[in-house]
């Protein structure tokens, strides 16, 4: 269905240019991170990468710990591909795309140990904090993976614990205790089209890529999560190149977070 578009994109890439004039490994501009924009959430952020805009909110609940980890709380990540943001999204239960988005963002945060789960313990074996992260795209112009992951991290970093009285959460009153985020995992999605590798795909590019690799890494270059997508295979060399791009671009995205 998209053969002509793919040929054209490959032709452009031979001249190191893309449909929107960018170079192959350039992110769109502007990259904006706004924190604490939603007062009903315990933590929140809105990330803009070019035309893509995603909101993430963090809500905290108290629950029972898992029996094998009695002194640890946990995170839960949900994503809804809101029809608001893209004419191709439909109402209904989360599609597999929504599930993948949530799980990939989850792994980036969980496996990097960005949040110390032991710091979420209230009463060992009885009560722990559950950190629920919800991803809501506002405008999907491509690359929800990276925008969502960045927004989730930013939202965690400005999360503040609400007051707890007699075991009940008083959501309207926030304490001064903030979420301890000890690592900065950032996701970079690298896509393969023909022989070329590009980052930060546009919606149109997402339709014609052969394969993608979402690379989550922390500031010191340690990989914490990987996800291959797309129906074509990757060679070992491809993976090495994509991982290198993922780590180096991750450093650039992290700068946006610090601004």
């Amino acid at each position: 269905m998209y053969n002509e578009l793919r040929s054209h994109v490959l032709k452009l890439l031979k001249a190191d240019t893309r449909l929107d004039g960018r170079r192959a490994t350039e992110y769109r501009e502007p990259i904006k991170v706004e924190q604490g924009i939603i007062c009903t959430a315990e933590g929140s952020a809105r990330v803009t990468i070019g035309g893509t805009q995603v909101m993430v909110g963090v809500k905290l609940e108290i629950g029972e710990p898992f029996p094998d980890r009695p002194d640890e709380g946990t995170i839960m990540v949900g994503a809804e591909l809101l029809p608001l943001s893209n004419p191709d999204f439909e109402l209904g239960p989360p599609s597999i795309q929504a599930v993948e988005l949530a799980r990939v963002v989850d792994r980036g945060i969980r496996e990097s140990k960005a949040v110390d789960f032991k710091s979420l313990c209230i009463e060992p074996g009885e009560k722990v904090w559950l950190v629920i992260i919800d991803i809501c795209p506002i405008n999907d112009a491509g690359n929800l993976f990276d925008a969502s992951a960045l927004a989730a991290l930013a939202a965690l970093k400005n999360t503040r614990f609400p007051k707890v009285e007699d075991g009940k959460i008083s959501y309207k009153e926030k304490t001064n205790k903030g979420m301890k985020v000890v690592k900065d995992p950032v996701s970079v999605t690298v896509c393969k089209v023909g022989d070329a590798l590009i980052v930060d795909p546009l919606t149109e590019e997402e339709k014609i890529i052969d394969a993608r690799l979402t690379v989550a890494s922390t500031a010191d270059g340690t990989l914490c999560a990987l996800q291959k997508g797309g129906s074509m295979p990757l060679s070992v060399e491809d993976v090495e190149k994509m991982v290198a791009i993922g780590i180096s671009k991750g450093k650039e995205l992290r700068v946006a977070l610090e601004r």
Partner: peptide, 18 residues
């Protein structure tokens, strides 16, 4: 028309999606 509240939009607890 479809009206929906995002899970973090309520003044208290999280609003379960759906």
């Amino acid at each position: 028309v479809n009206y929906n509240m995002m899970p973090f939009s309520g003044s208290g607890e999280r609003v379960r999606p759906g």
